[in-house]
Amino acid sequence: MEQSTNFLIDIPNHTAYLTINRPAKLNALNRATLVELSSILQRLKDDKQVRGIILTGAGDKAFVAGADIAEFRDLSEDDARELAAWGHREVMDVLYNFPKPVIAAINGFALGGGLELALACHIRVANDTAKMGLPEVSLGLIPGYGGTQRLPQLVGRGKALEMMLTGEMISAADALQWGLVNYVVAQEELLSTCEQLLKKIYAKSSTAAAAAISAVNIGLAKPEDGYQAEIHAFGAAFSTADFEEGVSAFLEKRKPNF
């Protein structure tokens, strides 16, 4: 187990367990935490031993309860734009486009920037007491780390606007029904459920997984480019070692060794 200023990092086998470790602040995302997260993500991206990430929060109350609002007080309009642009570029978009699967294990409140962090992950699993919301309107703000774009992709325009315009939290059960999370489980099953999902993914081709993530993201961002991205990635797969192994294993009636 490795401990940095705001994170606990544990990498047994091929999974990086990344825990935001600010329980006294309900794991709120201040600038220092985001800077640290950006650096950790780059390191995990380059680590060939790491095949996936489980991202969660320390303690039993919150995944991430939001941004650190105290840091907002003295920001100018230009400062705020730069903060949002930096957060998109260095953290949220990095997670969203990460070439290895990232699962958010939502162990409590996921509000504001915390929910946006979970939205940037590929898969979300919540415990049954989790609460999720985008309460920025209560501060005279709107989400600034991708919430206005990524939430409608998951739950649709109507439900997304309901959450953003009322600022109210929703339950884990509603989040599951709306498509915001993939699974809702008891707290004691939260990490094991994430682990089982990654186990299934690890049994498949990592190069194909990265290509699928990329093609899906391109199609969501630019629908007119999505099919061409798929065609290109499909063709490129034929020159990979994983394709050779996968087809050989299929024809030889054995499990592939990716």
Rank of each mutant, 00 (worst) to 15 (best):
Q42M: 11
G147I: 00
A62E: 07
D242M: 06
A58N: 09
Q153L: 15
A249Q: 02
Q153T: 00
G66T: 05
Y183F: 00
A249C: 09
D10F: 10
N27S: 03
S206L: 04
S206K: 10
K48T: 15
A212P: 00
E252D: 13
L190N: 01
V184M: 10
E71F: 05
R31F: 03
K199H: 09
P143T: 12
L191W: 04
L18T: 07
G235S: 14
L134D: 07
K100F: 01
A65G: 02
S38N: 12
N182K: 13
F238I: 08
D225S: 14
A203S: 13
P256S: 09
E36M: 02
L18Y: 04
N27V: 08
S206E: 13
L55P: 01
G158R: 13
Q196C: 01
G133E: 05
A16L: 07
W178I: 00
P143G: 07
F234E: 09
E2R: 12
A80P: 01
A70G: 06
V91H: 03
L134G: 05
R150V: 00
A126I: 02
A236R: 12
C194R: 04
K199C: 07
L29S: 03
G108K: 01
D242G: 08
S205N: 03
T19N: 04
E188R: 14
D68L: 11
E82W: 03
E116P: 03
N257M: 12
D47G: 09
G113V: 05
L119R: 12
D10N: 14
G87D: 14
S76Q: 07
A80S: 13
V102P: 08
P23N: 11
I20C: 08
I231F: 09
A105Y: 05
Y227Q: 12
V216W: 04
N21Y: 10
L75R: 15
M92Y: 06
Q3G: 06
F98S: 09
V35I: 14
R43A: 10
H14V: 06
I106D: 00
I9N: 10
R43K: 12
E116Y: 06
P143I: 02
I218S: 04
A212K: 08
L176A: 01
R157W: 05
L220T: 04
S205P: 05
R81M: 11
A160H: 10
L55V: 01
F243M: 11
P12L: 07
V35P: 02
G226P: 03
S239E: 14
L55W: 02
R124G: 09
A236I: 04
A65Q: 03
T207E: 15
Q49W: 11
I170Q: 03
A209R: 04
E77A: 13
L34D: 03
K200G: 10
D74S: 15
E136F: 01
G108P: 08
F238S: 14
F98L: 05
T207R: 08
S239H: 10
G52P: 09
E188D: 13
K159E: 12
V102S: 08
